[in-house]
């Protein structure tokens, strides 16, 4: 019963996705000298339009930009987040306090607001200078805020710093999951805290850290879409631009969705292999890859009838 209902609902979904509706226009032909007219039907979801724009040069540029901003933001997020996690776990109160404060601020304010602040930072500071603190006399390097925080850099900064706050908590969870005996064993070999973290603790913590990090990467990929607010030429910006000139709003939204979901799929596959890599030693036998599993199933299906024949 329940599966019957589910099946009907799925059938309805597939049908509506691939149904055609009258466009309101009619087209007429002359057949054997007689004029025959009929309504014109179009895809409800505008698939033909979607597919004519999926590989549009501007859309592809947008894809490139989205990937670049996501990758750079995650790079900042992961590295700064790991540093923050280690600082937070430090016995030094100043260090752990700073890390706590950072997480408190960046988790406590909307990323959208942070994005706009970085983009408008020139209002607060006209220049960024490198020099001796609290002195205006010794300045080694100075740069205008607007040339430092371009649209792309503002987006990367905003997303990266925000991500670091979230990732630091994920990393801290991973580090806490490792038995204290591991640190003691590393110390007894004469390793410094840094060496123990790098060679012993972090590689093991990765196993715990990766599944939620995969989530973060996928979440970041889609969050970058809000950078349309500052005019970042990403997937969202490019598809909206095309929609603005062609009035094909829904097909362009679907085009954007298609790209986001495709990249997400690729990332999920990547996550599977990364998880498998860090499972070394934790499992007696690594799980088979999907390809190996498919091969296994096929060979079993191939052998089953032969075996049946032999037994008969």
């Amino acid at each position: 019963m329940a599966s019957g209902v589910a099946l009907v609902l799925v059938a309805m979904l597939v049908h509506t996705l691939f149904s055609k509706i009258p466009s309101g226009a009619t087209t007429c032909h002359l057949i054997n000298g007689v004029k025959v007219c009929h309504a014109v039907f179009v895809w409800r979801f505008g698939w033909n339009i979607v597919f004519s724009y999926v590989f549009n040069t501007f859309v592809l540029q947008g894809v490139q930009m989205t990937l670049f901003v996501t990758a750079m933001s995650m790079l900042i997020g992961f590295s700064l987040g790991l540093v923050l996690a280690v600082m937070r776990m430090s016995t030094n109160r100043l260090m752990s306090g700073i890390a706590w404060l950072y997480t408190w601020f960046f988790r406590g304010t909307p990323v959208y607001v942070q994005l706009l602040i970085w983009f408008n930072i020139a209002v607060l500071y006209q220049n960024f200078t490198l020099g001796v603190p609290f002195s205006h006399a010794w300045i080694f390097y100075q740069i205008n805020s607007n040339s430092l925080f371009t649209v792309v850099r503002a987006a990367i900064f905003a997303f990266g710093l925000n991500e670091a706050a979230y990732f630091s908590e994920i990393a801290r969870g991973g580090l806490l999951a490792i038995d204290e005996g591991q640190l003691e064993a590393a110390k007894s070999l004469g390793m410094t805290r840094g060496q123990a973290l790098r060679y012993i603790i972090v590689p093991q913590a990765m196993r715990v850290i990766i599944p939620p990090s995969g989530n973060e990467v996928i979440s970041m990929l889609k969050t970058t879409a809000i950078a349309v607010a500052i005019g970042l030429p990403d997937i969202m910006y490019q598809t909206e631009n095309i929609a603005a000139t062609t009035y094909q709003v829904v097909p362009m939204l679907i085009t954007a969705c298609l790209w986001y979901i495709t990249i997400t799929t690729v990332l999920s596959i990547g996550q599977f292999y990364v998880e498998r890599h860090y499972a070394k030693g934790a499992l007696r036998q690594l799980p088979p890859t999907p390809i190996a599993r498919l091969r296994q199933d096929l060979s079993r299906a191939w052998q089953a009838p032969r075996r049946a024949r032999v037994s008969r």
Partner: peptide, 14 residues
């Protein structure tokens, strides 16, 4: 310069 062996081995599992 000092070797140590633990009750719970504490080998590095990875």
């Amino acid at each position: 310069q000092i070797g140590m062996v633990f009750q719970r081995f504490n080998l590095f599992p990875h």
